[in-house]
Nucleic acid binder design. Sequence first.
DNA 1: TTTGACAAGCGTCAGTTCAG
DNA 2: CTGAACTGACGCTTGTCAAA
Length: 105
Amino acid sequence: MAVTGDETETGTSGDLTACQLQNTGSSLPQGGAETSTQGFVKSANPSQKREHRLMKNREAARECRRKKKEYVKCLENRVAVLENQNKTLIEELRSLKDIYRHKVE
DNA sequence: TTTGACAAGCGTCAGTTCAG
DNA sequence: CTGAACTGACGCTTGTCAAA
């Protein structure tokens, strides 16, 4: 056996932490250099404010999609690893059953 | 070559969440 | 309470591919 031993190691425990989507960066203050932005927002006229808001949202949407894509890829990885692990365990069980049967006979 | 179906990516809006 | 960030939903554009 030891067919997929290496893969199990990269998978299970690692992916549990790697596949987190919710709190990876969403609630972080994103850079922290908001002072200039705030100054701008206060002095800007409504159409400038709107433009600024749209730009911010555009970037946020892009980032959101990037994170989601990464998360999905991570989950798919995890599925592959677990499927391999499952296959290995089934094989192992079969061979143990076989050994047992020969002993009994 | 043309055309229709499909997937992927994008921008925008609206609703939600959270820090200040 | 308010402003900023996040995200689901919607419509639009673009690229790819198989069938005609």
